[in-house]
Design a protein around this nucleic acid. Sequence first.
DNA 1: TAAATACATGCGCCCAAGCGAATGTGTAGG
DNA 2: CCTACACATTCGCTTGGGCGCATGTATTTA
Lengths: 134, 134
Amino acid sequence: MAKKEKPFDRELFFRALADPTRLRIINLISDQEVCVCFFVEILKTNQPKVSRHLAYLRRAGIVAARREGIWVHYRISTPNDENAARVLKVVREWLAQDADMQQDRTRLHRICCAPELPVQLQGSPRPTRIGMAV
Amino acid sequence: MAKKEKPFDRELFFRALADPTRLRIINLISDQEVCVCFFVEILKTNQPKVSRHLAYLRRAGIVAARREGIWVHYRISTPNDENAARVLKVVREWLAQDADMQQDRTRLHRICCAPELPVQLQGSPRPTRIGMAV
DNA sequence: TAAATACATGCGCCCAAGCGAATGTGTAGG
DNA sequence: CCTACACATTCGCTTGGGCGCATGTATTTA
């Protein structure tokens, strides 16, 4: 009844990072818990696409999901593998410095901190900062 | 006449890391200059395959080549992008700890340090340690 | 239980990437 | 030159991944 841990899949991990949409998602999450609907809005794409990329990141151990009623919140997950965690940390710092990525975060910040959410997001739970165990 | 530097391609960089053969090559190079023929021998594969993966790593700015007569030596190249360089550093440390990767390095070490090279490698220049600027 | 909402997944299409086999390129030696 | 050698590249094939679209699932509310 021990050892649920599957051996960490390094290939899957790197492939997960080898896609611009997934990197944008990782960047958008930052140190928050973000509802799926916000990704759809910021990335200006359709919901299935976002959902599939989130599933990919989940399988790779990069993000974790938490359901709250009808909504699902995503946050960064520290990979099981210590070295993968180190890589992810550096990658996130890299993204944080990128101009386009900063724009994405700015747009998310503008939307979720505005007094009124846009029509598509009425009633959606806004992103919330979470404690980063690092 | 300035700025030959193309803007660093982050996607290409990550895709380069998302392949087991290319990771094995990165690991084998370690802090040496290694002749192509040794990759063919250690990876137990054909020469075109190795050559294509090496070309991929070159385009991604991860390795550099140096011709010496009929032989071509490959070494790790520090990526133009500072953050990419940080990622690569962590990735290489990761590989260095991996059991399978250690086996590869051991086999390379055994072959190139033996008094007699195997038949396929007769006359090939052995890998040589190079100064790592880090 | 039925409808609405938010998200996940299955399906088919297309394109990129990896592969083996053949061919091309550059270099040393006769 | 011509050959031999090491390596690079091209070609055709096959596979995997991302995409849009349609459908499935889970949860809340009426």
